[in-house]
Amino acid sequence: DEIHIHFNGVTIEFRGLTEEAKKALEEAIKRGASEEELKELARRLIK
């Protein structure tokens, strides 16, 4: 299970995320999180 985020022309790929983690990332994107914020969020979620 993986998710691809297209962000300002950059694709960020995450693997092994739970549904909750995906929802958290989607919410962050909707509120306009920066690419760095998304990566940091993903790091926290994957652990």
Rank of each mutant, 00 (worst) to 15 (best):
D1W: 14
D1G: 11
D1I: 12
D1C: 14
D1H: 14
D1A: 13
D1M: 13
D1E: 09
D1T: 10
D1Q: 11
D1P: 11
D1R: 09
D1K: 10
E2V: 15
E2W: 15
E2D: 10
E2L: 12
E2Q: 12
E2F: 15
E2S: 15
E2T: 15
E2M: 13
I3F: 15
I3V: 10
I3C: 05
I3D: 06
I3W: 15
I3S: 05
I3T: 08
I3L: 11
I3H: 08
I3A: 07
H4G: 02
H4D: 03
H4C: 05
H4N: 03
H4R: 10
H4P: 00
H4K: 11
H4W: 06
H4E: 04
H4T: 08
H4S: 07
H4F: 09
H4M: 06
H4Y: 09
I5G: 02
I5W: 10
I5M: 05
I5A: 03
I5S: 01
I5N: 01
I5F: 13
I5K: 01
I5P: 01
I5H: 03
I5L: 11
I5V: 08
H6D: 06
H6S: 11
H6C: 10
H6R: 04
H6N: 08
H6A: 05
H6I: 13
H6W: 07
H6Q: 07
H6G: 03
H6K: 06
F7W: 07
F7H: 03
F7I: 14
F7T: 03
F7P: 01
F7Q: 02
F7E: 02
F7M: 12
F7L: 13
F7V: 13
N8D: 08
N8C: 12
N8E: 06
N8W: 07
N8L: 07
N8G: 10
N8Q: 10
N8T: 03
N8I: 04
N8S: 04
G9R: 01
G9D: 05
G9P: 02
G9T: 02
G9V: 02
G9Y: 02
G9Q: 02
G9K: 02
G9H: 02
G9W: 05
G9M: 01
V10Q: 10
V10K: 12
V10C: 10
V10D: 05
V10L: 08
V10F: 06
V10T: 10
T11P: 02
T11V: 13
T11Y: 10
T11N: 03
T11S: 06
T11G: 02
T11L: 12
I12K: 01
I12F: 04
I12T: 03
I12P: 01
I12G: 02
I12A: 02
I12W: 06
I12V: 08
I12S: 01
E13F: 15
E13M: 13
E13D: 07
E13A: 11
E13S: 15
E13W: 15
E13N: 05
E13K: 15
E13L: 13
F14K: 01
F14G: 03
F14Q: 01
F14I: 13
F14T: 06
F14M: 05
F14E: 01
F14R: 00
R15L: 09
R15D: 08
R15W: 15
R15E: 10
R15A: 09
G16K: 09
G16P: 03
G16M: 07
G16Y: 12
G16L: 07
G16R: 04
G16V: 04
G16I: 04
G16C: 12
G16D: 14
G16Q: 09
G16A: 05
G16T: 06
L17M: 08
L17G: 04
L17R: 01
L17I: 08
L17F: 09
L17H: 01
L17D: 01
L17T: 01
L17W: 04
T18F: 04
T18W: 08
T18I: 04
T18Q: 06
T18S: 12
T18M: 03
T18G: 12
T18R: 09
T18E: 05
T18A: 07
E19F: 14
E19Q: 12
E19L: 14
E19A: 12
E19I: 13
E19S: 13
E19M: 14
E19W: 14
E19G: 13
E19Y: 14
E19R: 12
E20F: 12
E20L: 09
E20G: 10
E20A: 10
E20T: 11
E20H: 08
E20W: 14
E20P: 06
E20M: 06
E20Y: 14
A21F: 09
A21D: 13
A21T: 08
A21G: 13
A21C: 05
A21I: 14
A21E: 12
A21V: 11
A21S: 10
A21K: 02
A21N: 10
K22W: 12
K22M: 12
K22F: 13
K22V: 13
K22H: 06
K22T: 06
K22L: 11
K22Q: 10
K22Y: 11
K22N: 03
K23P: 04
K23L: 12
K23Q: 11
K23H: 11
K23C: 05
K23S: 09
K23R: 11
K23M: 12
A24Y: 12
A24R: 09
A24C: 07
A24G: 05
A24Q: 13
A24K: 09
A24N: 04
A24T: 13
A24D: 05
A24P: 03
L25P: 00
L25D: 00
L25C: 01
L25T: 00
L25Q: 00
L25N: 00
L25V: 10
L25M: 06
E26T: 12
E26H: 10
E26I: 13
E26S: 10
E26Q: 11
E26C: 13
E26Y: 15
E26A: 06
E26W: 15
E26R: 10
E26G: 06
E27F: 15
E27V: 07
E27R: 11
A28E: 04
A28G: 02
A28C: 05
A28Q: 03
A28K: 02
A28L: 10
I29S: 04
I29T: 02
I29G: 02
I29D: 01
I29P: 00
I29R: 04
I29A: 07
K30F: 14
K30A: 13
K30Q: 09
K30N: 10
K30V: 12
K30I: 09
K30E: 11
K30S: 12
K30D: 08
K30P: 00
R31Q: 09
R31C: 04
R31I: 05
R31N: 10
R31M: 11
R31Y: 14
R31E: 06
R31D: 12
R31V: 05
R31K: 09
R31A: 12
G32T: 01
G32C: 05
G32F: 08
G32S: 03
G32H: 04
G32V: 03
G32W: 05
G32D: 03
A33F: 08
A33V: 13
A33I: 13
A33N: 02
A33G: 03
A33C: 06
A33H: 03
A33L: 10
A33S: 06
A33D: 08
A33W: 09
S34Q: 05
S34T: 12
S34R: 04
S34F: 04
S34I: 03
S34K: 04
S34D: 08
S34G: 08
S34V: 03
S34C: 03
S34N: 10
E35I: 15
E35Y: 14
E35R: 06
E35V: 14
E35T: 09
E35H: 11
E35G: 11
E35M: 14
E35P: 12
E36V: 07
E36P: 05
E36R: 07
E36A: 10
E36W: 12
E36F: 09
E36I: 08
E36D: 10
E36M: 08
E36C: 04
E37T: 05
E37Q: 07
E37I: 04
E37W: 11
E37Y: 06
E37P: 00
E37D: 06
E37F: 08
E37H: 03
L38R: 00
L38M: 09
L38A: 01
L38K: 00
L38G: 00
L38H: 00
L38Y: 01
K39M: 15
K39S: 06
K39W: 15
K39D: 03
K39F: 15
K39Y: 15
K39A: 10
K39E: 05
K39N: 06
K39L: 15
E40N: 07
E40M: 10
E40H: 05
E40L: 10
E40P: 00
E40R: 09
E40Y: 12
E40D: 06
E40S: 11
E40G: 03
E40I: 09
E40C: 06
L41W: 05
L41M: 08
L41A: 01
L41Q: 00
L41P: 00
L41K: 00
L41R: 00
L41C: 02
L41H: 00
L41S: 00
A42L: 15
A42Y: 15
A42S: 03
A42P: 00
A42K: 01
A42N: 01
R43C: 05
R43D: 07
R43V: 07
R43M: 14
R43S: 05
R43T: 07
R43F: 14
R43N: 06
R43W: 14
R43I: 09
R44V: 08
R44E: 08
R44Q: 09
R44S: 07
R44M: 12
R44H: 07
R44G: 03
R44L: 13
R44C: 05
R44W: 13
L45E: 00
L45G: 01
L45A: 02
L45Q: 01
L45I: 08
L45D: 00
L45P: 00
L45V: 03
L45Y: 13
L45M: 09
I46D: 05
I46M: 14
I46V: 07
I46Y: 11
I46E: 04
I46P: 01
I46A: 04
I46K: 06
I46W: 06
I46C: 15
I46T: 07
I46Q: 06
K47Y: 15
K47A: 15
K47C: 08
K47D: 15
K47F: 15
K47H: 14
